[in-house]
Design a protein around this nucleic acid. Structure first.
Lengths: 117, 117
DNA sequence: ACAATAGGGGAAAAATTTCTCCCTATGCCA
DNA sequence: TGGCATAGGGAGAAATTTTTCCCCTATTGT
């Protein structure tokens, strides 16, 4: 486990939300779980560019932050399902708005992002 | 300048918005500029935990992504003012919603964030 | 002459995040 | 028997981001 050497800033609301959403794949993880992709392997298939390892780590963080819940079925092969907590649900409108914004300005965004490599 | 070795994912709206908002201080930079703190030194005072260097770097990125505009006054000592572009303005409702969410759940967030160090 | 001001950037170090590789375990199927 | 699927975690490397330190501009005031 990595130990932070610099404490996070928790001064304002933006700091706080940043702390739980900051992570390369977290927005999409939350979104896909919200869409009903519950099992780790499904999520990995939805986000093939992420390594399996980081997805696990970020799922653990989301769980520690009480945004998602994990249900482990004691079967073999193992079965695990994630779902949004009530708390996690409250983020959905925001994530949805973010996705919509990105979709709305897709072309422009692609352009400015690629322009600066 | 750092050269990416891994290309960013630009598959969906969430990827795209992530690409322009991902950066430790960007949300707050945009927010403070929106609130009228325009000069680099003002922004640095508003965000004292960030090093001056990164703020410059992230401001440059926001500018490259056309979210903010930079006006340089040819005077001595130098004077620079940032402002949101029209495009940048369109993000304000989202950033505002994010800040509100963080404020609303401030206590709970502080708790879960600190619990896992 | 020298400090203060305001803005900016290079280089290298430190911090952090993400990736790769390898190992665990069980049951099903060819 | 060998290989696949499912889930997860450790170690260490690689990639990326952020910090630290130092230097440069030009004018005004001491």
């Amino acid at each position: 486990m990595y130990e932070r050497k610099i404490l996070p800033n928790l001064n304002c609301g933006l700091d706080l939300i940043g702390e739980v959403l900051y992570g390369k794949w977290k927005l999409r993880l939350l979104w896909f779980i919200h869409e009903g992709y519950k099992r780790p392997s499904e999520l990995q298939r939805k986000i093939p560019d992420a390594s399996r390892r980081v997805l696990n780590i970020q799922l653990n963080e989301l769980e520690a932050h009480e945004l998602v819940e994990k249900k482990i079925y004691p079967v073999v092969p193992p079965k695990v399902e994630y779902s949004l907590t009530e708390f996690g649900q409250t983020l959905i409108p925001i994530i949805s708005a973010m996705g919509n914004w990105g979709d709305e300005y897709e072309e422009r965004l692609r352009e400015v992002i690629l322009k600066q490599l």
